[in-house]
Computed example of a mutant assay.
Amino acid sequence: MCQFSRQLVLQLILYFAIGHIYGKQVFKSIVGGGAVIQQKYPYYVRLHYRGEFKCGGSLVRNNAVLTAAHCVEDFSVEELSIHADTINLDDNGVVRTIKYALVPKEYDKETKNYDVAVLILSSAIPSASVITLHKTAVAVGTSCLVIGHGYTKENGVVSNQLQEIHVPVVSRKVCQHKYRGIGAITQYMMCASEPGRKDSCSGDSGGPMICNGKQAGIVSWGMGCGRVEYPSVYTDISKVHGFIEHALKLYA
């Protein structure tokens, strides 16, 4: 059996066993990063389903969270919750249930195009610190912060302590070339990684990419973790900002 076939079979087995893999795109943790030992990213939240950690997210309003659509697409809203003001999985922090999960009609489950969702919380978090969104495209080479509880290596386990890395933005043209024949890199996506050294990975999905002090991306998908050949793919906030603003206005 060729290497590609073995990989495909393994992904199918994992899909039916735990439901964490959709086609060739996997849930994305931090590879090559460092532990966050003090609360310095108060806008970061965890998304849980039935009490189990699933994804990251960010507070964009005291009662609204930004995350990836694939983090909520197959889950019952009533059984979702977010945990804020915490950097360790053993700490519940401030917990809120979800009132509405808004996913754009443009979202494509297979390609992960337009992979964004806005979650309206059951009640506001009065002390919430929110992140400002990046409304313009980020220049290639810009060093961006990514945080999450994802795997610290491919085929690893989630990280109990929040992790952080800085990765440079890769041009869309270069990223499209690297993913040729594997997945489409659309205008709604951006790519970043330090090849073979620093990357997001499984478990980081939905979490923020911060560039120039503002959230420019949402961890979305990629092939493996920390591979030289494949950068991680993020939803480009500047291209989906209209949906985010519309969703927030609906529940102002």
Rank of each mutant, 00 (worst) to 15 (best):
I165H: 08
F53T: 00
F4I: 09
V31H: 06
G183A: 15
A128P: 15
L8M: 10
A17T: 11
T186W: 04
Q163I: 07
I218P: 04
Q176K: 15
H177F: 14
T132N: 07
T67R: 05
A17Q: 12
S122M: 07
T186Q: 12
V140M: 06
V233H: 06
W221P: 06
D108E: 09
E110M: 11
V146L: 03
I37V: 09
S81V: 06
G224E: 01
V94K: 09
H48G: 07
W221S: 03
T152V: 07
A247H: 01
I210G: 02
L59N: 03
G207A: 03
G181V: 04
F27H: 08
L102E: 05
S29G: 15
R180C: 08
K99G: 10
Q39M: 11
C71Q: 05
V146K: 00
I37Y: 02
V26Y: 11
V103H: 08
N88R: 12
N160R: 13
A216S: 09
K153L: 06
Q25W: 11
S159I: 04
D91C: 05
V219E: 00
I120T: 02
G19P: 11
M1R: 13
L250Y: 01
S58W: 12
T111D: 04
C201R: 02
K54C: 08
C225N: 00
S159Y: 12
T111N: 07
C201T: 00
G222N: 02
N88K: 12
F16R: 13
E194Q: 06
D115Q: 09
Y100M: 01
S232P: 02
M190I: 11
S200G: 02
V240W: 04
W221E: 01
K54R: 15
Q163K: 14
E245C: 10
A139R: 07
M223F: 14
H134F: 00
L162A: 09
C225P: 00
Q25L: 13
F75Y: 15
I30M: 04
V174D: 10
K153D: 07
S29I: 05
Y43R: 03
L119Y: 13
S193P: 00
I218R: 03
M190H: 02
G148F: 04
K99Q: 10
P168H: 10
F243V: 08
L250K: 13
G222R: 05
F53P: 11
V138D: 01
Q7R: 11
V116I: 15
I13T: 10
L10D: 15
S129L: 02
E78G: 15
G57Y: 12
E79L: 15
T97D: 15
I237P: 01
S81Y: 14
Q11N: 12
E229M: 12
Y230F: 15
I185H: 05
Y49N: 08
A192G: 03
L14P: 03
S127K: 06
Y251L: 11
L14D: 10
L66A: 02
G222Y: 07
Y230L: 00
P195N: 06
S171I: 11
F53L: 12
